[in-house]
Every structure is written in C-alpha cells, then in structure tokens.
Design a binder for these strands. Structure first.
Lengths: 221, 221
DNA sequence: AGGATTGCTTGACAAATGTCAAGATTTTAG
DNA sequence: CTAAAATCTTGACATTTGTCAAGCAATCCT
C-alpha cells in the first residue's frame, strides 16, 4: 500500500516553513514538491488563459504540461486547490509589472511615456492572462474559495496603480486628488473595456486607452 | 414524423416582424413562441445568477422552470443560443433602472440622494443578477458569440451612467469634466469592487460605495 | 546493491452534460 | 368533431468530467 499521510498532508497545506533544525533534506523535498506544483499551475494558467475557467478541464491542463492527468491529484487535493494555486501564482507575476518604470522615471513625461507604452504592450501581449484574471475575479463572486486570494490580488493591483499615480503626482510636486479605491476602479474599468474591445478585433482599442489615460492622469495626479 | 422546418427556423432567427398582411395568426404564434423563450430565459437567468455560468447546466435551468429539460431544445438551438437570449433579455430589465430618479429629481441633492439610495438597494437586492453580468461579460472575453450583445449592454450602461452624471451636472449649471468612457469605467469599477466585498460578507461595502460616490460625483459633474 | 520512498502513469468508475429522436399530449384549424 | 400542427415529456446516446486506486518507474538511503 502506498504511504499517503506525508504526501497528502503536504498537498493540503501551503508549503510553509520547514523550520525544524533537523535537516534541509525535508526542506529540499518540500521545495521540489512546491516547485512542481508551480510548474503545473503554470500549465494550468496557460490553459485557463486560452479557454477560460468554465471550459478548462483537468485533462486539458495536463495535456499542456509534460505529464498525464493523474499527476494533478498527486499535487493538488482537488480542482479548487489547483485553481487557487494558480491564482496565487498569477499574482506574483503580475503586480510588479510597472515598478521599474515607476522608480526609474525622472520626470512626468518620462513616466507617462513609459507607462503608456507598457500599458499598451500589456494589452497586446498578455491579453490571455488578463482575461483570465477578470474571469477568475468573476468566479470569486460565486465560489467563496477564491475570494480571499482574489481580494488580495485586487488590493495589490490597487497598490500598484496607486504607486504609479502618486509617483506621477510627486514628480509634479502634487498629490493625487482621488482615493486609492477610485483610482483603481477607474483604471481597472478602462483596462477591462479596452481588453474586450481589443479581443473583439478593435484595432484602435489600445490607442484609445492610451489617449484616455494620457488625458486623465494629469488631471488626477 | 415531426414537422421540423417551421419550428426550427423560428428557433434560429430572432422573432422579427411578421409584416405580411395575411393574418395576425402567424403573428400571435410567433409572439407565443418568443414569450415562452423569454419565460425560459428568465428561469435560466435565475439559475445563472445562483450558480454562475460555469456551473449552470441545461437540466438545472429546466428544473427552475415548470418544464423538463427537453423543451429547451425546442425553443433554443443550443446552449449558446439560450445564453444569448438571456443576455439580451437581461439588458432590457437593467438599463433603465435609474431613469425615473434621474428625470424626477429637481435638485442636485435630490438626485444624489435618490441615486445613492437606489445604488445601495441594487447591490443589496440584486447582487445575484449583477454578479451574473460580470460573469457573462468575462465569458465574452473567451466566447465570441456573446461579444456583440455584451458590448451593446456595456454601451447602454455607459449611457445610463452618463445620463445620471450629466443630469447632475446640469442641475448645477455645469457639464461633466470627464469622458463618457472614463465615467462609466469609474462607476463600473467601484460597483464591481463593492459587489465583491458585499458578497464576501463585508457589511460596510455598500455604505463605503455610497460615501465614495457621494464624494466623487460633485467633483466630476 | 537492495529495499523503501517518492513520483508518475494507466485505466477505470460514476456522475454529469449537451444533444437528439420518438412519442404522448395539447392546441389549433377546417 | 377530427385531423393536423404545435408543444412538451421521456428516455437514450455519446462525451466529458472529477476522482481515485493499482501498479510501474525512478530516486534515495543505508
């Protein structure tokens, strides 16, 4: 009979601190385990970005990875566990996207230019991932299991937007004139709309977004 | 053998003008047909609002209606057709929500008060329908079949928000200081965030939204 | 090297799903 | 009233889905 306890428990809890002074063997095993979890989560993200939550099955995910479908239940307790892992992993790749531009820019114009460029590139090159984000956020309205992670990501994104705007403001010796929440709502709404138009084949969607943001940001920050 | 042609064709095309001077018999038959379509679409909307797009099956929908699952294929060519019908029907119930308040109000205060009240009531009483809207809008990022209808609804909502804001502005002898698109993005983003918080059990979500809007609207319009 | 642990594959299972056709039932028309 | 048309039910179908267990393969440990 297969030994279940150790593995199964690892599946359920998020791999946290090994902490015991005993050895780094356990540690490296845990690392390997969670490394593969992430690898599988990445394959899952790819599939989700392509098909959306509703149409993504475990077998499709496995096919995008180099493994077979059974392995998913070795690394994840169930589908929700997997998706949660995806959501968490997605976050880390996403919230620092504009940080370099923000901290490097030395003038309002420079920041604006870099931001708009990156913004456009994001829509163009990562439309799949972003439609997935909106999909998963909507799922969290129904599936409580996703809510905490989604709320945390939302918060991180809000912070990200705030960093950009307050940097932009401070480069002009000012402060943003709206709240963090309102600012994020505004940008998120504009971005979402642009994404929909872009995916619908609207070639001017990105330029329109850039123009709108270019007009809006100076009046706000 | 069952006669297919007439019925099947009616299924596919949206019931439009009977127009022929021949009789209103055909007309009343078409009306009856599309009336039942709407009846079924309403049952579907109820189910969708409860479970979300990903978890809603035709059999569940039928169970919420007074019919059995087979009937859905009598009135709809397939699942996508049904959902599209739902989306279209949803629209008509949704975009005039604030019109009475908007046109009745005689002062900025009155409009603001009525709007905030209705806004709160919408989140409180119709959270299910609205999470469905966000779900379906996200689906349209993947499923092209929904895109046109979703875009149209989005436009209608933008108009709705614009009507409110420009009325509010004109009651103060002004004009809104942001574009229609930005205004809608802002409100949509705030609403969406509020909805998520509200459904997560956050008791202050609605009040916070009302406060934020109460602060924001006068600076914009 | 050899036994044990871990990692992965294979195949199976029951449940659920979209779809459809045959027929029962109801409504309509002449 | 009766035949035909419209409406609805029932049961079936082929897939797909999440889940899991048994076993093969690779790795580790002593």
């Amino acid at each position: 009979m297969r030994k279940q306890s150790a593995v199964t428990q690892r599946k359920i809890e998020t791999p946290s601190r090994p902490s015991k002074p005993s050895d780094r063997i356990e540690r490296s095993r845990v690392d390997k385990f969670s490394a593969r979890r992430i690898e599988l989560a990445e394959a899952a993200l790819e599939t989700l970005a392509e098909l959306g939550y509703a149409r993504t099955s475990l077998r499709e995910i496995a096919q995008k990875s180099e493994f077979t479908h059974g392995v998913l239940h070795y690394y994840f307790s169930d589908k929700v566990d997997l998706i949660c892992c995806c959501v968490r992993h997605y976050k880390s790749k996403c919230v620092t996207r504009y940080d370099q531009i923000t901290s490097a820019a030395q003038s309002r114009d420079e920041l604006m230019k870099g931001f708009l460029e990156k913004l456009g590139a994001t829509v163009r090159d990562e439309a799949g991932m972003h439609r997935l984000w909106y999909d998963l956020r909507s799922q969290s309205l129904f599936e409580g299991a996703f809510r905490d992670d989604v709320a945390e990501i939302d918060k991180s994104l809000e912070d990200m937007v705030w960093r950009i705007a307050s940097r932009f403001a401070s480069l002009g010796g000012r402060q943003p004139v709206v709240s963090r929440g309102a600012l994020y709502a505004l940008f998120d709404g504009l971005f979402q709309r642009c994404l929909l138009r872009h995916l619908s084949g609207d070639r001017t969607a990105i330029a329109d977004l850039q123009e709108e943001v270019g007009r809006l940001l100076p009046t706000i920050a």
